[in-house]
Computed example of a mutant assay.
Amino acid sequence: MTHILQLDASARPGRAGTHEHGSHSRSLTHRFVRQWVSRRPDDTVTYRDVGGTPPSFIDQPWIEAAFTPPERHRPWMDDTLAESDQLIDELVAADILVIGAPLYNFGMPAALKAWVDQVVRMGRTVEYDPSTPEAPFTPLLADRPRHAVILSSRGGAGFEPGGELAHMNHLEPGLTTVLQFIGITDIHSIAVENQEEGGDALAASVADAQERVDALVTRLQETRYSASATAQMCHNEGFRPGLHRLDS
């Protein structure tokens, strides 16, 4: 089975197309998860609304606790890190991370940045070894394949890679840097644009984004379950992964 962690970071609680003043990024995450589960009803989903209930900002006690070795923890330190531990456990359990994140002032919403600061933690999602200065960081979520799907919304247009405003978009690049740092390297991005213009331009962008979400669900399911079937076949036939080529 596949487990999905769905995060919504928009300050708007509803979904565009369903609720007045609803969020386009929430509509996209809902569509992705609905499409996925409709085809794979036994797969599971953990939902966290970071836009509605933001994680705590890290502070000095958090930093002291996070950088104190576990064997030297005082009781208050475990309490201080309890929220971080829960958020990290949710992330570690996920095979697919689905993030709904509008572009706010050229970057991610503060609530999502608070989540990032809680889950990027030495000893839990990344390790640091100063004895290897050429590559001191080891991503701990590279232990198995995970995908991240960033579903965004933007007021204007041209923020996509190669667009005339791409240099002002720090949302997808920022999230990609963070996710790769902790070991999630298969990253997919889809966005709705033209919210400020509205009308036909927005409608066309929404339709395009919905079509791309549906296609991504299909592609990820085909890739994931064909790979699982191949691995199971190799196991049943006694093949050792990496030593047998199906096209040989």
Rank of each mutant, 00 (worst) to 15 (best):
W115N: 09
V116D: 14
V116F: 12
D117V: 08
Q118P: 04
Q118T: 02
Q118E: 10
R121W: 00
R121D: 03
G123I: 05
G123K: 03
G123C: 07
R124D: 06
V126Y: 14
E127T: 06
D129S: 06
D129F: 00
P130D: 11
S131V: 08
T132K: 13
T132F: 00
T132P: 00
P133H: 03
P133G: 10
A135W: 01
P136F: 01
P139K: 08
L140K: 02
L140R: 12
A142C: 07
P145W: 00
R146F: 07
H147M: 07
H147N: 14
V149A: 13
I150V: 15
L151N: 01
S152D: 05
S152R: 05
S153I: 09
S153H: 05
R154C: 12
G155Y: 02
G155A: 07
G156W: 01
A157F: 09
A157M: 07
G158R: 09
F159G: 07
F159S: 13
E160N: 08
E160A: 15
E160Y: 04
P161R: 06
P161N: 10
G163E: 13
E164R: 08
A166I: 02
H167T: 11
H170W: 05
H170M: 12
L175T: 07
L175Q: 06
V178S: 06
V178H: 00
L179Y: 04
L179N: 11
F181D: 10
I182V: 15
I182R: 02
G183I: 02
T185V: 14
T185G: 15
I187S: 10
S189H: 15
I190D: 04
I190G: 04
E193I: 01
E193F: 02
N194E: 13
Q195C: 05
E197W: 00
G198M: 12
G198T: 09
G198N: 12
G199L: 09
